[in-house]
């Protein structure tokens, strides 16, 4: 088996200054002793409530937050002990879709500059970038006509497509997505889920998705990693976890989810009439 990404006992957090008087710097631990492996071509979802540390895990993977202890191995290389040029080279193989399409897009930049950025960063010639940008816009289902517009006028769903186009333009081998659908309506969410799966099938990427929504995870992953307060409380295939959850947190998540969507999933849950 080819392990593409491995976290080994990662503990990470943020430096914080607590209180006005004591300007004592301390580190707020957010992730505790996190270990997991992602194989090539896998679809993995990291699930957890708000504040559980999901985005922080992605920061660690993306080379943006050095763990306090533990290792991050990408393609077998220890990310945080590589010289910076080699680190960059590895990170270029990862495409990233950040959380919150409303805040992640520079409102004054034209779409072609936003989408082309990862190629520009590695010095690709501009006319190639433009060509490639229009290719990926097509892949994500956006009209060519927006290439010279800014993002300001775009709907949430279109913004998310722009971010996905940017993430895939440099043909990454790993696609990392932070809550790719949680700012969207159910129908637009469904469009994006289908788009991501068609990208997965066409380009044979490895996909790591962060979400708070078990239902979405079921569609975007084959394996689940469940996080609670910065710790992994459960890990397993989607079927395994849904059918036979082990941790109390996972059990309650599933129960709540079934309650909320009770009407559709099976008629065994009482509906108010």
């Amino acid at each position: 088996m080819d392990s593409i990404l491995e976290l080994q006992r990662v503990t990470a957090g943020y430096k914080s200054i607590k209180g006005f008087k004591s300007l004592i710097k301390r580190v707020e631990i957010v992730l505790r002793d996190i270990s997991f492996t992602v194989e090539k071509g896998e679809r993995v979802a990291i699930i957890g409530e708000s504040g559980s540390g999901k985005t922080t895990i992605l920061r660690v993977i993306l080379g943006l937050l050095k763990p306090i202890s533990g290792k991050v191995l990408i393609y077998g290389k220890d990310l945080y002990s590589l010289p910076s040029d080699q680190k960059l080279q590895i990170l270029r193989r990862i495409g990233y879709v950040p959380q919150d399409p409303y805040r992640s897009l520079n409102p004054v930049l034209k779409i072609k500059y936003i989408v082309g950025e990862p190629l520009e960063a590695v010095g690709v010639e501009w006319r190639h970038i433009e060509e490639r940008a229009s290719e990926v816009l097509k892949i994500v289902g956006l009209p060519q006509s927006i290439i010279n517009d800014t993002a300001e006028e775009l709907s949430g769903g279109m913004r998310q497509r722009v971010l996905i186009a940017r993430a895939i333009i440099a043909e990454p081998e790993i696609l990392v997505l932070d809550e790719p659908t949680s700012a969207l309506d159910v129908s637009i969410q469904a469009q994006i889920i289908n788009l991501l799966n068609s990208i997965y099938n066409t380009f044979k990427v490895t996909m790591i998705t962060v979400t708070h929504d078990l239902g979405v995870a079921q569609y975007l992953a084959d394996r689940l990693i469940i996080l609670k307060s910065g710790k992994i409380v459960e890990e397993g295939s989607v079927d395994e976890v849904l059918r036979n959850p082990k941790s109390e947190y996972t059990k309650s998540l599933i129960t709540s989810y079934l309650q909320i969507t009770g009407i559709n999933s099976l008629n065994n849950i009482k509906i108010r009439g």
């Binding site: 709907s155 129908s187 469009q191 929504d213 569609y219 969507t261 999933s265």
Partner: peptide, 19 residues
């Protein structure tokens, strides 16, 4: 048709287009 249901593998069927 667009609501993901737990434990039920059905394709999601959104219609194309935007609000």
């Amino acid at each position: 048709d667009c609501v993901p249901l737990l434990g039920v593998k059905k394709p999601l069927k959104p219609l194309p287009g935007e609000p």
